[in-house]
Design a protein around this nucleic acid. Structure first.
Lengths: 339, 339
DNA sequence: AGCGTCGTTGTTCTCGGTAACATTCACCGA
DNA sequence: TCGGTGAATGTTACCGAGAACAACGACGCT
């Protein structure tokens, strides 16, 4: 803790003070076996004395490992991607990795190819792509790449490592919930179908609706934004035939409720609305929003686990599916005719 | 675009192909003057042929510059910090930097000291701390540090570089707006006063309220969360004497509206509510939320500009104040007695 | 013609670690 | 007693770039 004035100490200065060669210091740092306890102690003392920290850049150059994970986030505005990024950062740090995020489609129009290039040139050990569109995935698939790449998305994929939120189960929960309440005609307001998550929710919705023998009704394709949903609801001229709307995310659900309200329809009296995400504010909307909660923390852990395994050449754990949970609140209720 | 099979090419392989020394290649890469056009062309062709990318880790070791900015985010859940991080990443990338975020107080309790250590050991060229508490700032102030450090917070500070959102102006807009509507008795629901932004908004509120000669009323200290605000509002037994509430962020404003609603009071009929942040959903609440918008994009640009100046030893631009804008919506209206 | 200058390019060293191989020495068994 | 073995440590090369300095040649000027 001395080291006044001079620049950052390096491994050889530590070696000199400890009276050993710099390799011995390196071995102590890396927990190599076959170091005499006394030698180790002297090295540790020297490290302490100089307040020495290994230079990770130099280490990265020598080992060809940066211990960094590049994360490509599509649309960093949404709640989901943001939460996932945070979760990945957290568990990466716990594993001694750091994270370099790049946001796509934000002001500048960065292509997936460019983002990958950028990160690979920086030497990240692995890549993680969050919540992408199928077009991005197609682009990624065409990129020959030397580092492990993991995609967080709905379906497994032979090309990449995959961790997925169980969209199917979550959506099924929603349909079952609405059916249990008595709904037999449900509208799905999906996200842009180019988004894999939107597509997965839409498919699961159809599948489950069909298995309940519910009326087949064309879905409405939104853009994830509350604004779109608001405009849609505002455009309704009379109370529709369907009695519930399943929006593919909370933002749209909220826009819907707002639009319906402005049109003179009340939720859930006239219409039930269900979202997806359970954003922190969902329970404070008027009415509080029924939605689906996803365990982003678990997702972050899985992502880092798989990537570490891939980086270190260990066996890669099987595809992880992150579970979901329905949170029933006041925005969904029995339809009028059933009451 | 050939380079089949073999490993990543390095600068010397490029040099060999171009028939020059590796230094000439380095000079071309770094736009040095005094390279014959013909030589440059040959080098560029060789680069193209091998699809060569400079190894940034090696460059970082040689130049002692990583071109990375470490960002410490306190509470990555909130809208503000998240948006700021995104904005900083965006403009950093435009400047050829990348960003390494670390989230504080998220599951693990990481101290500011540890976060700084982590990032400095990684060799970041500069540090940016977003939206911190005064205790964190105090801790940071005690850390002797070799890289430039910038803090995004309300007030200028001689110790650090500073970029600040003009909390004072934003708050003043709110008070003026409410006063213009006819309110004379306003409650402030602040954030935790340990947070600099909360403190700044609280101070500005008092100052402005006093200058209008408004009744001095103790503030209520919240914790930024909608839950807290909900509980507070729910706890009201009768309509209070104040006619408006200024919440220090949108989340709390929304929790308030929810709680008031559950208590049987309507916004803005019984009480006006104003928030701060203009989260994307603010306009879709019922009622749509009057709030203050901040230009996070401009903030990101300023942060990166100042840090680059500091890193490159240029003159540091003066403290930047990011402007704010009041967005008046339906949650604020004239008080009952004025109508 | 001789010399200084500048444009252009090359050689060598360095950044701060780790890997690979070499060395030393104690101990053990034949 | 000698060679083998393995623990403990040292020496040297290397990762892939940039910095500093050297070298070379063309050119202009006296």
């Amino acid at each position: 803790m001395v080291n006044v004035g001079s620049d950052k100490p390096n491994i050889r200065q530590v070696a000199t003070i400890a009276g050993v060669s710099h390799m011995t210091v390196s071995r102590v740092l890396n927990d190599h076996p076959n170091i005499k306890p006394d030698t180790r102690r002297r090295v540790l003392e020297a490290i302490e004395e100089l307040d020495y920290r290994p230079n990770l850049v130099a280490r990265a150059l020598a080992t060809q490992r940066t211990r960094r994970i590049g994360v490509i986030v599509e649309s960093a505005v949404a709640h989901g991607p943001t939460s996932i990024l945070r979760a990945v950062e957290l568990s990466a740090r716990a594993a001694g990795y750091s994270v370099t995020p790049i946001a796509l489609h934000e002001g500048d129009a960065l292509s997936p190819q460019e983002a990958v290039d950028n990160l690979v040139t920086q030497g990240v050990d692995a890549l993680c792509v969050i919540a992408p569109r199928s077009s991005s995935v197609a682009a990624l698939r065409r990129i020959a790449i030397t580092v492990p790449m993991l995609v967080v998305k709905a379906d497994a994929d032979p090309t990449f490592l995959t961790v997925s939120i169980d969209q199917h189960a979550g959506t099924t929960l929603v349909v079952d919930h609405l059916v249990a309440l008595g709904h037999r005609d449900i509208l799905h307001l999906s996200g842009p179908l180019d988004w894999l998550d939107a597509r997965a929710r839409e498919r699961a919705f159809h599948t489950r609706a069909k298995s309940w023998g519910i009326r087949e009704r064309p879905i409405v394709v939104g853009d994830w934004s509350a604004d779109f949903a608001y405009d849609f609801a505002k455009g309704l001229t009379r109370l529709p035939e369907y009695t519930a709307i399943f929006a593919a995310n909370d933002d749209m659900a909220i826009g819907l409720i707002h639009g319906l309200h402005d049109r003179g329809f009340e939720v859930p009296t006239d219409l039930s609305v269900v979202g997806f995400d359970d954003i922190p504010l969902a329970r404070h909307f008027l009415p509080p929003l029924t939605t689906v909660r996803q365990d982003f923390g678990a997702l972050g852990v899985s992502v880092v686990e798989m990537l570490r395994a891939a980086i270190e050449g260990r066996d890669i754990p099987a595809l992880t599916r992150i579970p979901t949970e329905l949170v029933a609140r006041a925005s969904s209720a029995a339809p009028r005719e059933v009451r």
